[in-house]
Design a protein around this nucleic acid. Structure first.
Lengths: 180, 180
DNA sequence: GATGCATAATATCAGCCCGATATATAAAAT
DNA sequence: ATTTTATATATCGGGCTGATATTATGCATC
C-alpha cells in the first residue's frame, strides 16, 4: 500500500485538501505512516488523473487556490480492492537500533545522548497520543481506536525496554550513581 | 543514517562481499533495517570511490568475480563521525495499521485474514530471533545483544496487543466461539 | 533422466518516497 | 518591530524498493 491508497482511504471520511491530509498524516497516522507534501500532492494529482478523485478549486485571496478533493465511486471500489488484496506489511527503519549495533565504536557520553534522545522521541509520541485522546474519540471507527492502542502499547514496550536495559551499553553515569 | 553507513559499520567486523552483507541484512538486521541488492551494491561502489573501502576482486569460475571489500582508516573515521553526529530516528511504515484504520470498509473475513497474517509474520521474526540466539551470541558486542532484545520485546508487545484486542475489529468467528 | 529450486554472485532500472526549498500572505506572538 | 505560526500548493535531487537479468553448480523431487 502506497501513499495514494492511504489518501484514498482518508478521503472516505469526507472531502479534503492536500493540506488537510497532511495534518492527518502528522497526527493520527504519525506513529506508523508519515508522509510529506512531496508524496501527498503528486498522489492527489495522480488519483484525479485516474478518475478516482474529483477536484474542486476554491479561489482564495493571497493564498494559492484551495483544491478540495472528493472520492468517486470508482475510487471507493479501487480502495476496497486494495484493502482486500494487498498483503499488509509492517516495516521498521531504525537508525537508532543501527547506531546501537555499533555502540562499541562510540564514546559513553554519545551512547547516553542517543538513548536519551530516543526516550524523548517516545515521550513526544505518548504526548501526541494523549492529546488525540483528549480531542475525543467516541465517534471514531473501531479500527482507529485499535491502531491508536497499538501505538501506545508499542511505545510503552520500547520505553520500558530502553530503561531496563540501557545498563548493557553504558556504565552508570556519575549523576545516576549518586541518585540510584 | 543511510545504507552506506550501515555497510561501513558491518565492515568493521572484517572484510566481506555485497552478498555477505545481504545475508547480515536478512538475519540480525532484518527486524529494523532491511536492504536489498539494489541499495547495497551501489553503496559499496560509492564507498570505494570515496576511498572509505578498498576492493579486492577474486576471480571465480562460472560465477561473477567475488568483490571483497575492506574498510580503510578514513572509512573508520567517517563512520565514527556519522555515529556521533546523526540524530538516530526510528520510523515505522505499517501498511498493516493503515489497513486496520479502514477496517470499517472491509469484510469480517478479510480483517481476520489480515490479523492472522500479521501474527504469522511476527512469529517468523520470533523464530528468526531464536535461530540467531542458537547460533551463539557469547562473542557478540553488547550493542548487538541490546538490539536483539529490543526486537524481541517489541515483537512480544505487538503479538500480545493483537491477540488481546482483535475482538475490537471482528466478531468471534464460528470456530473460535465453539472453542472459547 | 529431467525438471525445478536453492545457493552463489553481481548489476541495473523504473517508480516511489523523503526532505528541503520556493512562493505568498495574514495573524498571532514575542 | 520582528519573528513565528498557519494557510496552501508545488517541485526536485537523491535515496531506496522490488523486480528483473545473467551464469553456473548442486541437490531434491518426480
Amino acid at each position: 500500500m502506497d501513499v495514494k491508497t492511504v489518501c484514498l482511504g482518508m478521503l472516505t471520511d469526507g472531502p479534503a485538501s492536500g493540506y488537510d491530509l497532511k495534518k492527518e498524516f502528522q497526527s493520527t497516522f504519525a506513529h506508523f505512516f508519515a508522509a510529506g507534501y512531496g508524496s501527498i500532492y503528486p498522489a492527489l494529482s495522480r488519483l484525479s488523473e485516474d478518475g478516482l478523485l474529483t477536484c474542486e478549486e476554491i479561489p482564495q485571496e493571497g493564498k494559492p487556490d484551495r483544491k478540495v478533493y472528493c472520492i468517486t465511486d470508482e475510487g471507493r471500489q479501487v480502495l476496497r480492492d486494495a484493502l482486500k488484496n494487498t498483503k499488509p506489511c509492517h516495516k521498521i527503519r531504525s537508525e537508532f537500533l543501527a547506531t546501537m549495533c555499533f555502540a562499541h565504536l562510540m564514546e559513553q557520553d554519545d551512547i547516553q545522548a542517543v538513548l536519551d534522545h530516543r526516550l524523548e522521541d517516545i515521550a513526544k509520541y505518548q504526548a501526541l497520543f494523549r492529546s488525540i485522546e483528549q480531542d475525543g474519540l467516541c465517534d471514531w471507527p473501531q479500527g482507529a481506536k485499535f491502531v491508536l492502542g497499538f501505538g501506545k502499547a508499542v511505545a510503552r514496550a520500547m520505553e520500558n525496554y530502553i530503561q531496563e536495559n540501557r545498563h548493557m551499553l553504558v556504565e552508570k553515569s556519575a549523576t545516576e550513581a549518586a541518585v540510584g
